[in-house]
């Protein structure tokens, strides 16, 4: 088996709690491996440590204990140089929650160029990358627009283009859909899926929206700083009771089928897709 792209070993992250002498543990002994080219969804409710985990992966935060390997390179190594960090951040791009707070420039294409400019890429190559990145996210026609006139979903796609232009191997989406309306959410989710399937970029999507997790190859649920569940969406969402106890929901269709089958209706309880669910239900109702 090949070396996993991201490997995390016994990660501990704490911060000082103002109210007590004890440290507050955000992450306790978290270990995880993520394969190259996979689409992983990290779920968890507020304060579960999922965002902290994301910020550790490109050294915006550094862990108290534990090791993080990106593409076989130990980024928690205390002798890490500025240039190593630079390379890590190029390889592992990050898209944040608030689209307004991550755009730097007053013109869309100049914002997308910001990353490659920082990397010191040749001007003609930057031009090429900017055009293809905007094409990928479907924002080419807005290249010369001002970002503050775009919708939330469009801004977020511009932010994604800004990361793609740096040609990363992995992109972390830190609750990038949380502030968007349903339409913006769908736009961004489609872009994410496309990046993963067409360009083979490893995607780590952090969210608390269960319906988005269904689209992933793998779902990791973090609860109170520990890995709570890990598996394919089907495997994870079959643990309806366990998820509920952790204060998490399951996708609405799954919940419906789970409750129906628990009330003695003869239906499968592991339905994730709404279309699939609708078909099964209508077939069952015709019986």
């Amino acid at each position: 088996m090949s070396v996993p792209f991201i490997k995390v070993e016994d990660l501990i992250f704490t911060y000082d709690d103002e109210d007590s002498i004890d440290k507050h543990y955000v992450l306790k002994n978290l270990s995880l491996e993520i394969e190259k080219g996979s689409f992983v969804c990290v779920l968890g409710h507020n304060g579960s440590g999922k965002s902290t985990f994301a910020k550790l992966l490109n050294m915006i935060l550094s862990p108290d204990e534990g090791k993080i390997y990106i593409d076989g390179f130990d980024i928690t190594n205390p002798d890490i140089t500025e240039d190593d960090l630079f390379e890590i951040r190029r390889k592992v791009g990050m898209v944040f929650q608030n689209p307004d707070n991550q755009l730097v420039a007053t013109i869309v294409e100049e914002d997308v160029a910001f990353g490659p400019e920082n990397l010191g890429v040749e001007p003609s190559e930057i031009r090429r990358r900017v055009d293809s990145a905007l094409e990928t996210v479907g924002m080419s026609e807005y290249a010369t627009h001002a970002p503050h006139r775009l919708s939330g979903g469009q801004k977020q796609r511009v932010a994604i283009a800004g990361i793609i232009a740096m040609q990363p191997e992995c992109i972390i989406f830190d609750e990038s859909t949380a502030m968007l309306d349903p339409q913006g959410r769908a736009e961004v989710m489609n872009t994410i899926a496309k990046l993963n399937s067409e360009q083979g970029i490893t995607v780590i999507h952090i969210t608390h929206n269960m319906d988005e997790a269904v689209k992933a190859d793998r779902v990791v649920v973090i609860n109170e700083g520990e890995i709570f569940l890990d598996g394919t969406p089907k495997e994870v969402f079959s643990n309806v009771e366990k998820l509920r106890r952790a204060g998490l929901d399951v996708p609405q269709v799954t919940e419906l089928f789970y409750d129906l089958s628990h009330h003695g209706v003869d239906l499968p309880s592991d339905i994730l897709c709404e279309e699939e669910g609708a078909e099964i239900l209508s077939a069952w109702l015709k019986k």
Binding site: N58, I60, N101, E109, F114, N118, L119, P123, I126, I163
Partner: peptide, 27 residues
Amino acid sequence: FRRASDLAVAMECRCYRGGSGRTRMTK
């Protein structure tokens, strides 16, 4: 202030480290 701190993190994530070694798209 919150926006400023968010933006600083986002800029760092996009490999910003000041003016040295930077190129420009439009030469």
